[in-house]
């Protein structure tokens, strides 16, 4: 290894000596040539053309790079959006995607809720009502076969082993029970629209509420 390094150093030293000596020689030649008439008429023109051509190539390359970068960025954005969309879509229960919620909103008659009594909208019926202190819980069954529990008053708690999530929509508290339902209930109360659904987790619920309201 050391031997090889020595050889390399020797070669470098040799090359530098050569360049120094020939460089000095070339300088002398150059000075001598200053006095000579050389036929360099078209050289300036050729250099001009060659540099213009080179410049055009560099510009084209730069433009191509910009286009490629833009295209790559767009592709990344499209793939990312597509990936996220697919993942989010997969997380939403199938039933929440049908029927079309705006149609549902139009089809459902407003639910009269005054936090004391509840009348079910078309396609829904009240199975029973619980009273637990200040909390009134309305158990609804949808025409799709699922059930939804709507409560009013205090924060909800677990009644059936299912999870409850509090939802606050424009300062009006409502509570949802998630059971093994596959349904959506949309109703209006005092000009506010409520969305009841069967989210698998809290993020889905918020997303749906945000979407529909």
């Amino acid at each position: 290894m050391k031997h090889m390094q020595n050889d390399e150093n020797l070669l470098k030293s040799l090359a530098l000596q050569y360049v120094n000596e020939t460089g000095a020689r070339y300088h002398c030649e150059r000075i001598a040539l200053e006095q000579e008439e050389l036929p360099l008429d078209r050289l300036d023109e050729k250099i001009y053309a060659a540099l213009s051509h080179e410049r055009a190539i560099v510009k084209r390359r730069k433009r191509l790079m910009v286009w490629m970068t833009t295209a790559a960025s767009l592709l990344i954005i499209i793939f990312t959006a597509s990936y996220l969309f697919n993942n989010v879509s997969n997380e939403i229960p199938e039933a929440t995607q049908i029927p079309s919620p705006p149609m549902m909103a139009a089809e459902q008659s407003p639910l009269e809720i005054d936090f004391v009594s509840l009348s079910a909208p078309e396609g829904w019926q009240i199975i029973y009502t619980d009273h637990d202190g200040d909390v009134t819980i309305f158990h609804l069954e949808s025409r799709f076969g699922g059930t939804v529990v709507v409560s009013a008053g205090l924060p909800i708690y677990d009644l059936t082993g299912s999870a409850f999530w509090p939802v606050f929509i424009q300062d009006v508290p409502a509570y949802l029970l998630v059971e093994s339902t596959h349904s959506i209930l949309i109703y209006e109360q005092d000009g506010f629209q409520f969305v009841l659904t069967t989210p698998y987790d809290y993020r889905d619920l918020i997303m749906l509420a945000g979407y529909w309201l």
């Binding site: 030649e29 050289l43 050729k46 060659a50 540099l51």
Partner: peptide
């Protein structure tokens, strides 16, 4: 440019080709 042209001309023995060589060298 004159020295380079002269070096190129020594090899090529052609004015125009020597100019081409110098032009390419400067690129």
């Amino acid at each position: 440019k004159r020295l380079l042209w002269s070096k190129a001309f020594d090899i090529l023995k052609d004015h125009a080709l020597a100019e081409d060589a110098v032009s390419e060298a400067f690129i």
